[in-house]
Design a protein around this nucleic acid. Sequence first.
DNA 1: ATTGTTAAGGTCGAAATGACTATAACTCAC
DNA 2: GTGAGTTATAGTCATTTCGACCTTAACAAT
Lengths: 250, 250
Amino acid sequence: MYGSANVSERQAQPPALAISTVIFALRRDEAAGRDEIWLPLVRRIRQPHLGKWALPGGPLDGRESLQDAAARHLRDTTDLEPTYLEQLYAFGGLDRAATQRLVSIVYWALVRPDQADLARASENVRWFRASEVDGLAFDHDDIVAYALGRLRGKVEYGAVAYHFLGERFTLTQLRGVYEAVLDRQLDPANFRRQLRSAKDIVPTDEVLQGGRNRPPRLYRYSGDRPETPPVAGNRPGTTSTSTPHASRAR
Amino acid sequence: MYGSANVSERQAQPPALAISTVIFALRRDEAAGRDEIWLPLVRRIRQPHLGKWALPGGPLDGRESLQDAAARHLRDTTDLEPTYLEQLYAFGGLDRAATQRLVSIVYWALVRPDQADLARASENVRWFRASEVDGLAFDHDDIVAYALGRLRGKVEYGAVAYHFLGERFTLTQLRGVYEAVLDRQLDPANFRRQLRSAKDIVPTDEVLQGGRNRPPRLYRYSGDRPETPPVAGNRPGTTSTSTPHASRAR
DNA sequence: ATTGTTAAGGTCGAAATGACTATAACTCAC
DNA sequence: GTGAGTTATAGTCATTTCGACCTTAACAAT
């Protein structure tokens, strides 16, 4: 059932622990005139699943925090510094790996398009459209799908979209992020109205010159706090939620 | 716990992996006339932190999924079957344990009050008011605080409150859960209006008899879906799929 | 100057929200 | 059995939000 190790051997071994990262970046499809979500994958150079594409990752170095390990894998594969990095989930199904019990703690990251342009690609590192990812090694198809769902959730209540963009951005660029993530068109006027009432998005006194139309104003994200996640030893990320539901006191 | 290991030895060792659970239950404070969130803790019977209170948990058994392990710890300490069990976060800071690098995957559970009544308590298992938890072993204070924050977030957008209750419940009981979690009063009429428009809460044809006032209608939760988590291999009733990991390439 | 295109602001009805009032249905004290 | 007290439940109303849509502003290209 499980390759070489027999059942009792396998049970005796402690579970192995690995870190993986799902890295999302925005890329403009000039033809279609819209943004899309892409992610880098690495080709497996050993068994199992040799030759298949997989999420960047590897074993946890004993001296670095989970988050640091995720950031390191990010650098190693793409030379990127993440704008946003958060823990996604710990996957620990029994049969994830053939030879040993394997628990993977998966992080997800957002990077800016200018960074993504610089990002390395090579024979064994390639970028894929997130919507077209399929046939990955292990259960990575499922992990990517789950990460996309989480990304949608976060964007919907307006918590992360700007991490795809540079320090200053136009509302149209930001809308492009929303549309790419949510995969539907948004009304520009209504989008503007909503975001102008968002505390964290503040207009600068600059506009973006050089376009062929009316120069749009530039905005920036002021919520300098990366939204403190859980606890010490795990640093930034984001976690909280908020969304009204019940009514207020009287 | 893990004997004496010096620093270099420590780095050489693979990180230890443990599962812990934060178990929330509702308890009625008859005096104050409101519900409160409580949780069971276990007393540590060995070093480090001997004698301190801590979250139930222990090392991951190689043969059970993460979720199964969490459920088992729940049973072992409280004899409870959780109504709701979900992964909270993986904590992996460098200095969480003195002697060895320790990564804890923490789950959180909600249990019903009737179950909580039956729950075991003993010399080494005691229930505490969630708001008063303090001085726990390791970083468990932080973990509990984080779990409470997540609980609030979930409740706010109406996703979990009924898991604190039995199969049938009145809207007032449900409001009690909201108020206990959010720690503020809600307008009964507005609360009712909102929940009546929630698809998942359906009225039954029964009312709760025996109270001293007008008998309230009983409702039940119809969203039979246990809130789909991420992927296979992690849900209670679900079957596992496979899922391993990738190493680096380049 | 005209045209095309995007930015930015406004209008309007529908829907949701929060504060509040009114009535119904029960128990209990008397 | 009557009235007081309490909770359940429905409804009112002003304010806010949301979605669809229209208008004007500011540019480049021609």
